[in-house]
């Protein structure tokens, strides 16, 4: 394998050294300094490391760098724009949908992917889409409310 790989993260082309055997999670955190994506289990069970690859939510702990070269990667740091927070980030604050916040970035990334697929997800769709994300502090009810609130904001924006 090459001594370095290039990844497109949050719209920027970035270089990752010694990519062999390196997880996307490790590359994001240790090579690119994007530590908003968290390690929770290393086995794809908790969702703390969720990022978007070509818009789909993936567990960055299970993917190797080589598998995502040439694809578009979005981490939590890439959501807010000059216009402000992503509607789901804002909704998390408005619904107080966090305690320790360690799961929050993964939750938000799973939620963003869901909202991209379903502008008005039902409660059952939210539960189904987010089932792989663990919040050990138990703020699930608030997270569901935040996704619903963000969906409302999103609809208003697209109608307005």
């Amino acid at each position: 394998m090459a001594a370095s790989a290039t990844l497109t993260v949050n719209g920027q082309v970035r270089s990752v050294s010694d990519p062999e055997g390196k997880s996307l999670l490790s590359a994001l955190r240790d090579d690119l300094g994007l530590v908003g994506t968290h390690y929770g289990c290393g086995e794809g069970q908790c969702g703390a490391c969720t990022v978007l690859v070509d818009g789909k939510p993936v567990r960055s702990c299970l993917l190797e760098v080589g598998q995502v070269e040439g694809k578009s990667i979005t981490s939590v740091e890439g959501l807010a724009t000059n216009d402000g927070l992503h509607p789901l980030q804002a909704a998390f604050l408005e619904e107080d949908a966090l305690q320790c916040g360690y799961c929050t970035s993964g939750m938000i990334m799973s939620g963003v992917a869901l909202l991209a697929r379903h502008a008005s997800p039902t409660r059952a769709q939210i539960v189904h889409a987010m089932e792989g994300n663990i919040c050990r502090c138990g703020t699930y009810t608030r997270i569901i409310a935040a996704v619903e609130r963000a969906a409302t904001i999103g609809r208003e924006r697209s109608n307005g």
């Binding site: 939590v76 604050l93 107080d96 929050t104 938000i108």
Partner: peptide
Amino acid sequence: APKVNGRDFVTGTHRYPSDITRPGLLV
């Protein structure tokens, strides 16, 4: 009152203990 530094958590800018880095850091 909402979490005082809540914005840091939803934007991924809060630094948890496992996020701390130092020059020359080894794993």
